[in-house]
């Protein structure tokens, strides 16, 4: 009577070793996984560096915004200020090094740009063409749509009109503060030389720019309105 061979019996005659190819493939797989983990770590660290750089940029931006908010309205963009005047710091960009303990950190450039006010070059029904003081920027197309322009001085002063569109130097306005359109100036057409202020203030664009340690140029901006004192 023949006996069946139980499963747990082992016959070594048929056992074979692991081939070199199998070993190489196994090593390659483990190496690939490890390299993937390492690359993931490097990527995470770089992302964190970027985040930290941006945190510092936000801090510098907020500092610039806070300084602009408390500036003397009449001295903003004044190019004749003495070097020690507080508002003179806004007339040129400054480099900011955030931390002496991290010398490899990027240098941040803090810059200010002024916009939103000027004098009347000419005006007609529904239109105002502007002249700008030195340092005050011209406008982006339609950036002031929906804002209000206040004519402050001169004949036709002390009136407010709603801006419906603008070009680099010209506003199209209406006396309807809500919907609708009427081009008649409420208190008479402003005369040449009259001062005007969009939203009754001066706008300061604060910008922080830097080149990250990854070599990427980045920037953050915020616009501040310094209201005209009454």
């Amino acid at each position: 009577m023949a006996h069946a061979v139980p499963r747990q019996q082992t016959c070594m005659t048929s056992a074979r070793g692991v081939t070199l190819l199998e070993v190489v493939i196994a090593i390659a797989i483990i190496a690939a996984v490890s390299i993937g983990m390492y690359a993931s770590s490097v990527y995470t660290a770089r992302q964190n560096e970027d985040n930290l750089e941006r945190e510092y940029a936000v801090q510098i931006l907020e500092m610039g915004v806070a300084k602009a908010r408390v500036a003397d309205f009449t001295k903003i963009a004044d190019t004749t200020l003495t070097s020690t005047a507080y508002e003179n710091q806004f007339n040129s960009s400054t480099n900011v090094n955030v931390d002496s303990l991290s010398p490899d950190f990027p240098t941040y450039k803090l810059a200010y740009k002024f916009t939103g006010w000027g004098t009347v070059n000419s005006a007609s029904a529904g239109n105002l063409t502007a002249d700008f003081p030195a340092n005050v920027s011209k406008w982006e197309p339609n950036e002031w749509t929906g804002h209000f322009v206040v004519v402050a001085t001169g004949s036709g002063g002390n009136q407010m009109m709603r801006i419906t569109k603008n070009t680099a130097q010209k506003l199209t306005v209406t006396n309807k503060l809500g919907s609708g359109s009427s081009s008649t100036w409420l208190s008479g057409t402003p005369t040449s030389g009259a001062e005007f202020y969009i939203d009754n203030g001066k706008f300061v664009d604060v910008t922080v720019s830097w080149t990250s340690r990854q070599g990427i140029t980045e920037n953050l901006s915020e616009r501040v309105l310094v209201p005209r004192p009454i």
């Binding site: 660290a45 964190n48 560096e49 930290l52 945190e55 510092y56 801090q59 510098i60 907020e62 500092m63 915004v65 806070a66 300084k67 908010r69 408390v70 955030v98 931390d99 303990l101 991290s102």
Partner: peptide, 18 residues
């Protein structure tokens, strides 16, 4: 620094509030 990990991590506050 972030690469070596262990050690002092810090944030330098140098700002203004209006």
């Amino acid at each position: 620094d972030l690469w070596t990990g262990r050690g002092f991590q810090s944030f330098l506050l140098n700002t203004s509030v209006a």
